[in-house]
């Protein structure tokens, strides 16, 4: 953390987590915050931005993104997570391709050009299948810490086929599988596979160019990364911090605004 005041701030008010990135004039990261998204999102955004800017809003450009982007009242501009993720991943990886972002409440596939422009995209609908929420619901039912879901899935000796792609129905299916005596780790592996197949189908609908990149909180799961590579037929590139790509993209846009680009 730096005492220097930022000139550009990106705030990603996601459904599960809120991420903030503050940059200096040269684009160096001065501060990074990740915390659970509060139900009182507007208040939370105000508190975070007050803290990071020291209240000196006139000196700072702020871009807000994520589902709560319009609730960050002090932001200079609200930009969708599609554009911010594309900007952030292009900055991190240095090339275009297809970004798969699996967040808490939605997943999206974004086709990015060689110059970083968004060429096409698709998102899940209101359904929570194919999102982090799907894993959360399942982890809760199986009483496994969410952070251990990936490891458990990868180490499982076998896999149970989860036929349902709906988070609510999957929970019922888990109950049925447990009743049949299926081992928990086999079910966990099946769940990870189910999520990946859903997202891969979304990606295929766009005729996606290679390479594939992955971002979002769910990208931290080694099982999701491995299964996604299998489903797509090639390795998936991962940025250093997949969870903050949207906030980083927003911060970079704020820096562009600050510099008058």
């Amino acid at each position: 953390m730096s005492n220097k005041l930022p000139v550009a701030v990106g705030i990603d008010l996601g459904s599960a987590f809120t991420k903030v990135i503050a940059l200096d004039e040269e684009g160096k990261v001065l501060q990074k915050i990740i915390e659970d998204t509060d139900p009182y999102t507007e208040k939370q955004a105000g508190r975070l931005l007050d803290g990071i800017t020291g209240g000196e809003y006139h000196r700072v450009s702020i871009v807000a993104t994520g589902y709560g982007r319009k609730l960050a009242k002090r932001s200079t501009r609200a930009v969708t997570e599609i554009s911010c993720h594309a900007k952030g991943i292009f900055h991190e990886m240095g090339h275009g391709g297809t970004l798969i972002d699996i967040g808490g409440q939605d997943s999206k596939v974004i086709v990015i050009s060689d110059t970083g422009a968004v060429l096409n995209f698709t998102m899940n609908d209101k359904c929570a299948a194919g999102t982090g929420r799907f894993l959360e619901v399942s982890a809760n039912r199986l009483k496994i810490p969410i952070e251990l879901m990936g490891k458990t899935a990868l180490e499982a000796a076998s896999e149970v086929k989860i036929t349902s792609t709906c988070a609510v129905f999957a929970e019922s299916e888990i109950v049925g599988l447990l009743a049949k005596g299926k081992p928990v780790d086999h079910i966990v592996r099946g769940l990870a596979r189910s999520l990946v197949l859903r997202v891969a189908a979304m990606a295929h609908s766009l005729h996606p160019p290679k390479p594939f990149m992955l971002s979002g909180g769910v990208a931290r799961s080694p099982a999701i990364r491995a299964f996604l590579a299998e489903a797509l037929g090639q390795a998936v590139e991962l940025p250093e911090e997949p969870q903050i790509i949207g906030a980083l993209g927003a911060a970079l846009m704020a820096l562009d605004i600050h510099k008058g680009k």
């Binding site: 969708t80 997570e81 939605d106 995209f121 899940n124 609908d125």
Partner: peptide, 23 residues
């Protein structure tokens, strides 16, 4: 944009439109 006209527009659909404009 796939909609169900019996419901208000979802946040996801609005995001799609805005992202399309940005792109």
């Amino acid at each position: 944009l796939e909609v169900d006209i019996s419901e208000p527009a979802s946040a996801q659909v609005q995001t799609r439109l805005e992202a399309f404009a940005e792109s």
